[in-house]
Write a protein that binds this DNA or RNA. Structure first.
Lengths: 145, 145
DNA sequence: GATGAAAAGTGCGAAAC
DNA sequence: GTTTCGCACTTTTCATC
């Protein structure tokens, strides 16, 4: 993982379909050298996936919420992970400092489907209650993982 | 935007480097038909970008926080956008229901750099105060926009 | 270990239909 | 929408440092 790898990653982030030759010209390597490094980055798990960013509105996913999760007693992160992994509406989540145990970012088609997903989280073991903030207008979308 | 388009998008989300022929075989179209649809989806802005998902830890971005933003008086979403767009540590943000005006998801190298970014947000016009929850352990990372 | 150059194979992309 | 075809790209091999 040197500066060449970082350069390759930056270029792929901007355009994952860029040709190896084009990338090589930017970072100063031959096409085959770039391919070998990309293959290694994928094998090492540095590059997790090649994906596309889709307009959420077009995709029919208009409704978002940030949900604070409060649990009874002490709950291991692994247990929270198992609960949340089963709900596809959860797009990101993490345990946090403060009074809440975790913050969960959810996205779904509409309010009813969001509510249904929220109910699934609420009725999971250990979950005491939740506090939701529905997103009114999305301001920034730079997350890629 | 029909079910074929949705199928193509789903496959590209899983693997943006999938060949048009392979995609066509899955959704029941020829390679060139798939290409034309993908080109149209890109032109229409449905597909925003082809990117890679990089392990944030490898990338040196270990520190995350969810920040509630409280403003003085009424602030238009556009004004909040201008404030937040200047802070690269902001990876996603939206105005929300509830007592906070917005929720901001931030990511940076470490706590000091997170604090510095937070200071920039705090001292922006209209911002009254913030309430942060530092992420202890990331549970789910499915966001792609 | 790493690279670059050249070979072979594969898929893209632009036609014509 | 499909099929065809030339070409560019990927991917492998090999020699080199």
């Amino acid at each position: 993982m040197d500066n060449l790898d970082r350069g390759i990653i930056d270029l792929l982030r901007q355009n994952a379909r860029a040709g190896y030759g084009d990338i090589g010209q930017e970072v100063g390597l031959s096409a085959s050298a770039v391919k070998r490094r990309v293959d290694r980055l994928v094998a090492d798990g540095v590059i997790r996936n090649f994906t596309i960013q889709v307009d959420p509105a077009v995709d029919g996913l208009h409704t978002e919420a940030y949900v604070e999760l409060f649990c009874r007693g002490t709950v291991a992160p692994d247990e929270l992970l198992r609960i949340l992994a089963d709900v596809p509406e959860v797009i990101d989540a993490g345990t946090v400092t403060g009074s809440a145990d975790a913050i969960v970012h959810m996205r779904s088609r509409d309010i009813p489907s969001l509510e249904a997903a929220l109910e699934r989280v609420r009725h999971a073991p250990h979950v005491d209650h939740t506090r939701s903030a529905i997103v009114l207008s999305r301001l920034i979308s730079r997350a890629i993982d």
